[in-house]
Design a protein around this nucleic acid. Structure first.
Lengths: 137, 137
DNA sequence: AATGAGACTTAGAATAATTCTAATTTAGCG
DNA sequence: CGCTAAATTAGAATTATTCTAAGTCTCATT
């Protein structure tokens, strides 16, 4: 489960620097929605001379090119997620773990929301706070 | 449309002070999802000696007692909303206006989301960023 | 209506996440 | 291989929010 492969976003137009690679690999290798400062800590283990400002820059660049998603929960620090598929987040209050949640096949927003007439949707964020019962097995 | 009534949350257990009344009325009289500092500006017009810290305290108290909702959009300043019914928000990128959006009658989350087994939901936040075509009439 | 305890309010300092600045280094095209 | 624009850096700056400690008010109880 902890295969440490080399990942490469390979995005057209995104200049691939040493630091961007490190940050991207940090996100791919432990997909637990880390904050910028957690990414910073992990990145320094790989390349100790990276700075926090660079981590922010790299994350911004990766988000800007659509290689990772930025997740905001309440007003906490932003978190970063390499899951590019359309999904929401379930924040388990017991464990603090953030789970990705997907839509059921063939779901369309206007089926259940009263959206403004003729609106265009650029981005959707669904965040649920709750708890998951401990598995009894 | 700009009736300036006196509103009172009348919540059991919520001590109703002068400042809390002012803050609550500010929210009720212009229901446009203001930030704390916008609430501060409007409150000072009614009662110039209110402080920003008090505005934060009052908003926190009102949120804590369920008299208003706190809305977070990305990592921008929190906004406050006296619409207590279950609803999401549509952020119009053209105008900057935030519209409340409601669920269609009888909607259940698990109809369209793959939720964790047996999870309990405490809070749901749906935020859509998009645009609404200008009305042509 | 007076009292008192605890909750509210205040100004200003402190904090925390993020962004900015200006100087230096680097990627990658030609 | 040299060049130029873009990336990186350390540290300062910014911004929203929270904290602190002292003074004030609300309201249940008299």
């Amino acid at each position: 489960m902890s295969t440490t492969k080399e990942h490469d976003p390979n995005i057209v137009g995104l200049r691939m620097t040493k630091h961007r690679k490190v940050v991207y690999n940090v996100l791919m290798n432990e997909r637990d929605h880390p904050t910028a400062s957690e990414v910073y800590d992990r990145s320094r283990k790989i390349n100790p001379e990276i700075s926090l400002a660079t981590v922010y820059n790299c994350l911004d660049a990766l988000v800007g090119y659509g290689a990772v998603k930025q997740v905001n929960f309440e007003r906490e620090s932003s978190r970063y997620c390499p899951n590019l598929s359309e999904h929401g987040h379930f924040h388990d209050g017991n464990t603090g773990v953030i789970h990705d949640i997907t839509f059921k096949e063939g779901t369309n927003l206007s089926q259940f929301l009263n959206l403004p007439d003729g609106c265009t949707i650029d981005d959707l964020e669904i965040t649920i706070r709750g708890s998951i019962p401990p598995t009894s097995n």
